[in-house]
Amino acid sequence: MNYLIAVIFQPGFFVSGPVHTAMIIGGGAAIVSAWIGVFTIIRGQSFAGHALADVSSAGGAASFLLGINPMFGFLGMAVLAASAMEFLGVSRARERDLVTGIVLGAGLGLTALLLYFDVTTRSTTGAATSVMFGSMFAIPASIIPAVLIIALAVVLLVAAIYRPLLLSSLDSTLAEVQGINVRLIGLLHLLMLSLAVTLSAMTIGAILSTALLIGPAAAALRLAKRPGVAICLAALIGVGATWGGILLAYDSYNWTPGHGWPVSFFIVTIIFAVYLLAGLPGRRGRLGIPTTNRLMST
């Protein structure tokens, strides 16, 4: 037993500074992604989430060039892209997909250019991998307070507008009838989405951050019967996958001596596995946690 634990938690795991930082930032990113991801899926805006993440990579690439902390690059670009989508904004789903796709293309083109400059001026390919696929163990601890503030802000804002956000995500007419400003709610959702994407872009990279945003939430939607339960479950899955991925990546230094495997690979793989498991027949919508005697014979 002790031997098993020693194999799983390799020496130094619990005292390693980079591991601590990765766990805090990864956990924050997972929680924020879960809170907002559930609504993103209900609204049918997963593609917008993916586009914001991809576009934010241009900001990441720019910050390498300028030598600033990538978080501010990711953040700036994601917010910019969200505003662009809202500005070009259209309500019809089809047109929305088109606008999203066009913003996405423009953003990735910029990324290509900036990464090219990164590589040519610094003669290193590290920037590209780090921006696109993340490098969790290289995150400086100094960024922790900023990450926690962003995470807290998103969680508090979602809590504040929880019901209007839920109702307008379900059906905008029902929300409008109750006097809810559907447009404002949509804007706030995009804004929080860009914050969530920023955090996960730093964690598992811009390209993969959709996995953290959509994966746990999608698995939770398969299982849960109530929105609150879905959010908590998504947060649990996200944090579990992130921490599990960090652990396995740390262990992997011993599998291929000298260099470990990327954390992102493990995180994304765990999320994928959980999503598949959640789809097994007989599990759908089971997690209702009935609070009253309403469970009927049906």
């Binding site: 809590a159 504040a160 507008i161 929880y162 019901r163 209007p164 109702l167 029902l174 109750q178 006097g179």
Partner: peptide, 9 residues
């Protein structure tokens, strides 16, 4: 939600 959809918190 018909009753509380517009409420904050």
């Amino acid at each position: 939600l018909g009753l509380t959809g517009h409420k904050l918190g």
